[in-house]
Design a protein around this nucleic acid. Structure first.
Lengths: 229, 229
DNA sequence: ACATGCAAGGCTGTATGCAATTTTGCATGC
DNA sequence: GCATGCAAAATTGCATACAGCCTTGCATGT
């Protein structure tokens, strides 16, 4: 075994990233042998990783025909966003009930700390990372490991489109809103233990992107099908 | 290849059922070779199926050590129920907005049709099936494929404990409530397009089982660890 | 009696080979 | 020109083999 720590884990992570970034074009067949050669591994571990990605919703599998990249379709993206609403609204409700005041203050401090980093001039990837991080930390305050798991999965599958959405926003196509403000509002409701208000803020915060993202998916279509890899 | 249609699919289904039913005891290591011999297959397809089950939350995997059955722990079961609340409440909200009146009436007719089957005298497995079916159909009215996917997965992972819970109810340990009544109440709110009321009914309906299920998990502990397989 | 190190066995990690199936390109007939 | 059938090539499905790690039980020393 080549690496002392874990060869297959990095293999899996690589494939996961490739799937998340649409390194495989939507609906395209995935050639196991080619992948194996490209990643300097054999087909067996590749197939294991691909099977996991199927279960996680990144790929599809047709018996006897192999693995395919998931389609990139606006309706699906909306579904994923709606699922985020479900998960995160309930998470913030639970956080209202269960999170300690100390935990909430820690999250507020974290938000204050990274706030300067979080402006229109920031690198898109960094901004996305910070945004996901906030939502993840907030969800973690629910104390519910399953909700965190589900959110992580959804974020992985949405990330590509969000990136495109953020690029459009930064390029000025859409009026830019202060992203930190919405987060502070949610935290305020959480601090005052107002579950309905917190959930409502969260819902609006996430749903607000819906139309933007629909647009972004159309842009993604163009970006995916035009440049030949 | 033995079966014309698909050998690995049935293999996967078998393992999935075994995992759902805790044919592997919680936290027990899963021996790939033994499984392969038992199911008349080789390790390769077994491992592929196990990897999928890891991604679906049925099993855990530790690099270099193999696959393990998920632990059966009350806190986790609560997490899963809470996730159901998140998914189903949002689903019924979406259904209020998007489902056609015809669809709602169809669901009500279905409920009327199966209502006679759905009493205290009914077989536990049948009752569970009907209950899951109702919730699934309701979630389907959201028109959101991702929410259905998530609910299916949660139900698969909760089913074992629900079964035990239902058995206790039927044996008279807990005062029996009419399960159809709660479903009708949710449908009524849905029919009148009252999203808040529908979500609220759904939340109460699911959360009501919480303490029962906590008890049921303790019973499951006993049932799992005493009889030697 | 208890801790520690070592060795053997078992199990996982993955490469590879082959059979079966699907795909594809071409030839043939309508 | 288009559909159809066939054969070759590519690809998947899976069994097997083997290398290396993890576990475990025993022996040895304190």
């Amino acid at each position: 075994m080549s690496t002392a720590e874990s060869n297959v884990d990095r293999l899996y992570e690589t494939l996961r990233r490739m799937a998340a970034d649409f390194a495989f074009k939507p609906d395209a067949r995935i050639n196991e042998s080619a992948l194996a050669a490209q990643l300097h591994a054999s087909r067996t571990p590749i197939r294991e990783a691909l099977n996991r990605l199927v279960a996680e919703g990144f790929l599809t599998f047709r018996s006897g025909r192999g693995f395919f990249c998931r389609p990139l379709d606006p309706a699906r993206v909306l579904d994923l966003y709606q699922a985020r609403v479900a998960i995160e609204c309930e998470a913030v409700r639970l956080a209202c009930a269960h999170a300690t005041t100390t935990q909430i203050e820690e999250l507020r401090n974290w938000l204050d700390m990274i706030a300067p980093d979080y402006g229109p001039q920031t690198d898109v990837a960094r901004m996305l990372e910070l945004d996901e991080d906030f939502h993840r930390r907030l969800t973690a305050l629910s104390g519910n490991a399953e909700l965190i798991r589900l959110l992580d999965n959804l974020n992985d599958r949405i990330r590509y489109v969000r990136m495109i959405d953020l690029r459009r926003m930064q390029s000025g196509a859409v009026p830019q809103r202060d992203p930190v403000a919405a987060h502070r509002r949610i935290l305020d409701s959480l601090a005052s233990r107002n579950a309905d208000a917190a959930a409502s803020s969260m819902r609006k915060h996430i749903e607000r992107r819906r139309d933007e993202v629909t647009e972004a998916v159309r842009a993604a279509y163009a970006q995916l099908y035009v440049p030949d890899a």
